[in-house]
């Protein structure tokens, strides 16, 4: 069972649709008790960083999420803004992030990019797995299991994750330059792209997460 956190900033319906398609039971919740009972957690998110963090604070779920994720080590997957919120802070706003993964969120460095790279980065891209991902594979905890070189994912973002600890980078993508497309610290995962909008590549990734 995968528990999808509903805090009023995220396209939860499409995540649920895809989980349903791959036969993974899921529940959408904004209740503390349901989060308390969760086996796997997905933290979705679209929109402005401050809006997302404020909504999450207002939901009153941060405390129970801290306990689940940091103490009980329940696997959690942040998607898009949900992944960015796992970091310390973002150039997009002034709110603090959850601080679970040592990274900052920064705006795409336009001056380092060719003019054909418009912002937001909106489109499909391939990813390159990092050393950490390969180590995970050997340990059998592989979010990218059975996702080979042809795997493509849908991205839409103007800000990106900048890990301050290089080991947390799980995969990179290239849009003008290489940046972190997926991060991991222990049981906490974050993907900048939208698996729920990435056809069977996304289905496979969500299947992998459900099987962690």
């Amino acid at each position: 069972m995968v528990t999808i956190i509903d805090y009023g900033a995220g396209n939860i319906k499409s995540i649920r649709n895809m989980l349903k398609r791959i036969g993974v039971p899921s529940t959408i919740t904004s209740e503390k008790q349901a989060v308390q009972d969760a086996e796997k957690i997905i933290l979705p998110g679209v929109g402005h960083f401050d809006y997302g963090m404020r909504q999450l604070k207002q939901s009153g779920l941060i405390e129970v999420l801290n306990q689940k994720v940091l103490e009980e080590k329940t696997p959690l997957l942040g998607i898009c803004l949900g992944a960015q919120m796992l970091g310390n802070k973002s150039e997009e706003g002034s709110e603090n992030g959850l601080g679970w993964i040592n990274m900052d969120i920064i705006k795409f460095k336009i001056e380092q990019m060719p003019p054909t790279c418009k912002i937001p980065n909106m489109g499909w891209n391939k990813i390159s797995k990092s050393k950490t991902a390969l180590q995970n594979k050997n340990k059998g905890v592989d979010l990218f299991q059975h996702l080979e070189e042809d795997a493509r994912f849908y991205f839409v973002h103007s800000y990106h994750m900048l890990p301050l600890d290089t080991e947390v980078t799980l995969a990179t993508a290239n849009y003008g330059y290489e940046y972190a497309a997926a991060v991991q610290q222990g049981n906490i995962y974050g993907v900048q792209f939208h698996p729920e909008k990435s056809h069977f590549f996304g289905m496979r990734l969500l299947e992998n997460f459900a099987g962690l």
Binding site: K13, S14, N17, M18, R21, Y154, V156, H194, E196, K197, S198, H199, F200, G202, M203
Partner: peptide, 12 residues
């Protein structure tokens, strides 16, 4: 729209 979206595993 909801019915259509339930079949759409791509950006919509």
């Amino acid at each position: 729209i909801e019915e259509i979206c339930s079949e759409a595993f791509m950006p919509f």
